[in-house]
Computed example of a mutant assay.
Amino acid sequence: MSVLLEVIATTVADARLARQAGADRIELVTAMGEGGLTPSVGLIEAVVAAVEIPAAGVPVNVIVRPHSRSFVYDADDYAVMLRDVRAVKAAGANGIVIGMLNREGEIDREGLARVADAADGLAITFHRAFDETRDLRQALDVLLGFDAVTNVLTSGGKPSVLHAEATLRELVKQASGSHCTVLAGAGLTVDAIAGFVSRTQVEAVHFGSGVRVGGNGLAPVDMEKVAQVRALLNANPGTTSRG
């Protein structure tokens, strides 16, 4: 199979356009300008109804992030996140996208365990909070210990994955053969994708502004750009899953 393509959607229209153009999976967020926050239940339900249909549909993973202050959460934040996780499951989505750290810059294992329990079988993508950990390889080892975590979204600790290819290669090798896929995202463009995939051997890529009108993260999804990326990925052999 070709490399998996995940596209960020912030509206029902985004999700429809991404699916029609060949995206394998949707990450549903609101507040793209803040790095993505939890969308409303109404939006989750509408997007799931629009694109996550049997046979022809694509899975929808929903970000659960209560605020953009930091990835260190207090008891109230966790209470909110756990309620949101259950709401995402009730809405019929495929999975959640979440991340939490402690004050030492390490993954909050206890918090992640609570979320995994609340997710009750939903696929879990650990988002780019991962890139703020003190040691990426150690953090990945922690995540590999959680069976529920099926993807790690990372830019290799840099603002753009295009400046972290060596790190991405190492992370892909570290996760090889596990239940967890390294999902490369941040800074990817249509022009760069083929060479990037070839050099890093990533099995899944994540696009936001790179497949939007004018390269603007707040603009709608550009079907033509998604279709271009899909075609380029199809030309790169690889193996992947849809978790």
Rank of each mutant, 00 (worst) to 15 (best):
V80G: 01
S2C: 06
R114A: 08
A184R: 01
S40T: 15
S209C: 06
N234V: 01
R109W: 13
I193H: 09
V60Y: 14
D84T: 03
G208M: 04
V211F: 03
S68C: 06
S209N: 07
L144C: 09
A93V: 09
V62F: 11
A55Q: 11
T189V: 11
V88H: 04
T167Y: 12
S68I: 02
V48D: 09
A50L: 11
L17Q: 05
F130N: 00
G243L: 07
R212M: 03
L171Y: 05
M32R: 14
S176C: 04
A49S: 12
V7W: 09
D77H: 03
A116H: 04
V51I: 06
M100T: 09
R242T: 03
D135H: 12
V152K: 04
A46M: 04
V41A: 13
V29T: 09
A55F: 14
V64H: 08
K225V: 07
V161C: 15
L43I: 10
S176D: 12
Q20H: 10
A9Q: 05
T10I: 12
K89H: 09
D108I: 05
D74K: 13
G92E: 05
A129F: 00
L37N: 10
L232C: 05
R199C: 00
A231R: 15
M81E: 12
E110K: 06
I96G: 02
F130W: 03
D120A: 04
D131C: 02
L188H: 08
D120S: 02
A166N: 08
D76M: 02
D74W: 15
A175P: 09
V3T: 14
V221F: 07
E203P: 00
N216L: 04
A87L: 06
I8P: 09
L43E: 09
A15L: 04
A91Y: 03
A118F: 10
E106A: 14
E106F: 14
T133E: 05
T38H: 09
R128I: 08
A15N: 08
E224V: 15
I26F: 13
S241H: 11
P59K: 13
E224G: 09
I193G: 15
A148E: 14
A23F: 09
V48K: 01
V47P: 10
R212T: 01
G187S: 04
G36N: 05
R109E: 15
E6I: 07
T10D: 07
R25W: 00
R83D: 14
D141K: 10
A90R: 15
L101W: 05
G57L: 12
V64D: 07
S2L: 00
A91D: 08
A90M: 11
L188W: 12
R128S: 11
A21R: 08
F71E: 01
N234Y: 00
I53P: 06
G157T: 03
L143N: 06
